Simulated assay, not measured.
Amino acid sequence: MSKLFGYILSPVFYIFFGLILCIFHPIQWLCFKLFGYKAHKVSVDILNFFLTYCQILLFNSISFKNEYDLPTDRPIIFAANHQSMYDIPSLIWFLRKHSAKFISKIELTKGIPSISINLRLGGGANINRKDNKQAISEIIKLGRRMKENNWSTVIFPEGTRAKDGQLKTFQYGGIATILKVVPNALIVPVAIENSWKIVRFGKFPLSTGNALKWTVLKPIEPGVKPPNDITLEVENEIRKVLGQPMAQPASQSV
């Protein structure tokens, strides 16, 4: 039934999603050119509100849960699992007061209405995955901007999307690199549920009637913990929410 409704509703969803991207592209440019970064950020926040709640056109529900009073005067590294591209607009919207930035593929900085201009102007890190030196340099620059502006960033330690919802092993490189520049950054796990189901049939039809959930988990003080231990802790906290088997330290892996 979800697939049947998907054939009917997916064109409507894509039309509205595309229109929103096209409408906000010039709005972002004007906000940035005329009023600067803060106005541009407001336009991006509003853009991602509409992109997030476009999901109601597919009868998908949206739930964001945060029981913690997270600081706004301190950089935060939000570490989340990654299930689909639809994870991102909701993270931008729900974490907007923390000025969350992303590490993105440099290829995305061209050719996509609204998204490409935001990646170029928004202050995140746009990396070339084929150039490790460039990638590390861009992440370090992002860390410096976090430190200077009390910005936050969202890391997907899996490195790619888990298209079936099953977590992949978290890699600690991104967290480690940022912590070298911003050692006082708070680590906050975020568990994402069911967004993989939107695209379980592929790009068309999209799946309908899914309960999409974003849950902020207990913050982790980095202290003197090594990045690999922090990353393992983040991964296992997310696994608990998703009901998946716990990961073991590399030395204990079978």
Rank of each mutant, 00 (worst) to 15 (best):
Y53H: 11
N126M: 10
V188P: 12
K33C: 11
G202R: 09
L108A: 05
T177Q: 07
L57T: 15
I187Y: 07
I175Q: 03
T169C: 00
F64S: 04
G173K: 12
I76N: 03
T177A: 14
P222Y: 11
W214I: 14
L217F: 08
V12N: 02
I15Y: 15
K3T: 13
F50Q: 02
G223W: 10
G143C: 07
I62M: 11
A79T: 14
A185Y: 01
T169G: 03
Q28Y: 04
A135S: 15
I139R: 02
I15L: 15
Y172V: 00
Y14S: 00
Q171K: 14
E235W: 00
K197C: 05
Y68S: 07
S61F: 05
S99R: 13
P157G: 04
L95H: 09
R120K: 15
I103G: 06
V42C: 06
Y86L: 12
G209N: 13
F156Q: 08
E235C: 01
W29V: 09
L34G: 01
E148L: 10
F201C: 08
F49Q: 06
N118D: 10
C54D: 13
G243Y: 05
L242H: 06
K141W: 00
S10I: 09
G122F: 11
F13H: 12
D131M: 09
I112F: 11
L186D: 01
W214V: 14
D87H: 08
P227G: 01
F17S: 07
F35K: 14
F24Y: 15
G124L: 06
V199I: 14
Q166K: 12
I27Y: 03
P26T: 03
S63W: 07
L70P: 01
F13C: 10
T109R: 09
L206C: 10
P71D: 11
I88K: 09
V234P: 06
M85W: 13
P71A: 10
E235A: 04
N184P: 00
V182L: 06
P249A: 01
I136C: 03
Q244T: 03
Y68E: 05
P249F: 01
I106H: 03
L4K: 14
P75Y: 07
T231R: 02
G165I: 04
F59R: 14
T208W: 09
F204K: 02
S207Q: 14
L232D: 05
F59Y: 12
R145N: 13
A191V: 07
R200P: 00
W93F: 15
Y53Q: 04
E233Q: 12
V154W: 03
K141Q: 13
T109A: 02
F64P: 01
D45Q: 04
T153Q: 02
F204Y: 15
Q83R: 02
F59E: 04
I76M: 02
I76H: 04
N228W: 07
I103A: 06
I139A: 05
K213T: 11
G123L: 08
R96E: 03
E158Q: 15
N210A: 10
Q166I: 12
S61G: 08
N228A: 06
I76A: 03
E193S: 11
T52G: 02
S253V: 08
C31K: 00
N48W: 06
V12Y: 10
I220A: 05
L70D: 02
I115P: 02
G202S: 12
Y86P: 00
